[in-house]
Design a protein around this nucleic acid. Structure first.
Lengths: 182, 182
DNA sequence: CCGGGATATCTCGACATCAAGACAGCTAGA
DNA sequence: TCTAGCTGTCTTGATGTCGAGATATCCCGG
């Protein structure tokens, strides 16, 4: 094996195998979508390992950053949080329970809607999320080291094109207050 | 709101919020990596919904396609399967148990290594995976409708660059037999 | 003012995943 | 040949997530 072939990834091998087995099908969509799935899985694994060092779980981080982004007073409804993190309502209730038990958020009644609840970051929560976020950015910056500035922008733009249809259909939801998964 | 602004996605909003709250940080990595995570999550949700129509779970599909890709006799070890699907060994044992109970695979002793097992697709498994895969490709093709041929290739290439370091470090694993997540 | 439908959150049970460790069998070197 | 270490698979217990449904409240039209 020489040294200079443009590096192959697992998806290249996977696609080649499919072309062998099913030459009748156009498997080219996998070149993009399979890479998105696999990359996401690797990223998730990295995040998990990295957060483990600072007593922080990946799911905690997702919720806390959504609150942090919202700005003072760092307060969002469970509904806004579940739209931001793309989980179901049952999952979010459970997450809030545990974050509250850990003292990172408080759960307060919404003065304007008696069905509602407002989840607010505590001092401790704010401190933890700021530390973890700074750290995450540093690590993610390294993951992108292989790409130049222009390439990153191109990549971001292409991904946005794929993402817009999904985020648009969820648009109605709730006053598109905040949202997004870090 | 006019109609022609270049469409925004949730990540644009998320990044804008961070720039407001933490102008001291360079959050540009999120433009790429947050989109990868969110897109993957949306794709997963789509797949789940789509497969539900044909008595097929997303995790079953992942395992069956890995076997299908391997070519006749559609047989791989649990180890190869877990590397292909990026799950842990305990998860794979559990998956194989359930697939075998459903009659989609059989579990046979490896004649060359008495610790080993070979998982093989049954006729029923082969039929199911071929049907599901054809269907998946059709749907994934539609998801990419927003991009032209050249854009897809560019996107695939950029993602490969990010993926190579991960897949390379796993390279040693097991005779890089097959692998890949569909 | 009332009823019906929408919305916000929570409850509950099923289930898939992970992490760590148990164990049998392989393999290379003394 | 024996042993030490490695590999491949399975076991176990904890945990997070989903999906469906329950409940309370809101809001609009009549």
């Amino acid at each position: 094996m020489t040294f200079s072939r443009p590096a192959e990834d697992e998806v290249d091998r996977l696609v080649a195998a499919w072309r062998q087995e099913r030459p009748d099908l156009d498997v080219s969509p996998l070149e993009v979508l399979s890479r998105v799935s696999r990359l996401s899985r690797h990223l998730e694994r990295e995040r998990r390992a990295a957060f483990a060092g600072q007593d922080m779980e990946s799911w905690e981080f997702d919720v806390l950053t959504a609150l942090r982004r919202a700005g003072k007073p760092y307060e969002l409804s469970p509904g806004a949080l579940l739209r931001a993190t793309l989980v179901t309502s049952g999952t979010m209730t459970n997450r809030i329970d545990r974050l509250a038990a850990a003292g990172l958020v408080t759960r307060n009644p919404d003065p304007e809607d008696r069905r509602g609840v407002l989840v607010r970051l505590t001092e401790a929560g704010l401190a933890q999320v700021d530390a973890a976020f700074t750290d995450l950015l540093r690590r993610e910056h390294e993951l992108l080291a292989g790409l130049g500035q222009e390439e990153r922008q191109a990549l971001a733009g292409l991904l946005r094109t794929l993402l817009v249809p999904f985020d648009a259909s969820a648009e109605n939801g709730g006053a598109h207050s905040s949202s997004g998964r870090t």
